[in-house]
């Protein structure tokens, strides 16, 4: 069974009187242990697709099966729970909470899961060790370099043991050397732990590293 099964997904926005179609019928199956890159020029709909796959947004028509369950019309509250348990997000500009320290940032998803404090603490430490950030647990995000912040963000995405990790331009704010390190971390997670990872990027170097690449153009998959 596929982790994600998208069937004829469309997404349209209404702006004034005109209707803008961002996605025009996407069919996509994502298997376990996949490492998928979604590429395309800006405006191709790749971010919209990721938002829908990440349950941050609803699709207009079509069906979205997550682990065999139709989640395309799920209530918002259930979406939040599903996001919390099944998904991890990594963003281009890291999006760590500036007031919290590294450890607290990583523990955040577990907080919304009502995990006990000691267990979340333990889990977060474990994950931070895995991404090589265990020495920085007391630091605030602004005391870290971009690469270090992204590692923390990856730890936050991993801590809830999700089915899929969505990374939206994860190397976009990093220099090429650090970007490569981050990609290596993703590859390692995919290879060693069998994590399913979806990377949205327009960087050819990044997409070359992935097992599977789909290209989006004007809301359609033009190349798989």
């Amino acid at each position: 069974m596929s982790i994600i099964d998208l069937q004829n997904i469309t997404k349209s926005y209404r702006t004034g009187f005109s209707e803008f179609c961002a996605l025009k019928g996407i069919n996509l199956q994502l298997e376990r242990r996949d490492m998928l890159a979604i590429i395309g020029s800006s405006g191709s709909g790749k971010s919209t697709l990721m938002n829908i796959m990440g349950l941050l947004d609803y699709c207009s028509t079509g069906n979205y099966f997550l682990l065999g369950e139709d989640v395309s019309r799920l209530a918002e509250k259930k979406l939040a729970v599903t996001r919390n348990k099944k998904m991890g997000f990594v963003f281009q500009s890291f999006f760590l909470l500036p007031r919290l320290n590294v450890l607290q940032n990583v523990m955040l998803p577990l907080f919304y899961r009502e995990e006990s404090l000691t267990l979340s603490h333990q889990k977060a430490l474990e994950i931070l060790k895995k991404v090589g950030m265990e020495k920085f647990i007391d630091h605030k995000p602004n005391q870290l370099s971009g690469g270090q912040q992204q590692r923390v963000a990856i730890a936050r995405a991993l801590v809830g043991d999700p089915e899929v990790i969505f990374a939206d331009e994860p190397t976009g704010s990093l220099d090429s050397k650090t970007g490569r390190e981050i990609m290596d971390l993703f590859l390692k997670l995919n290879h060693d732990e069998g994590r399913t990872i979806v990377v949205v990027t327009h960087d050819k170097e990044v997409s070359h590293l992935c097992k599977r690449v789909i290209t989006l153009k004007d809301g359609l998959i033009v190349c798989d």
Binding site: L56, A80, V81, R83, N84, K85, L96, L108, P109, Y112
Partner: peptide, 16 residues
């Protein structure tokens, strides 16, 4: 706003 967005992304419910 951004903080709210991040919290929602990692699974905070609206009630949270």
């Amino acid at each position: 706003r951004r903080e709210i967005g991040i919290r929602l992304a990692v699974g905070a419910k609206r009630s949270d």
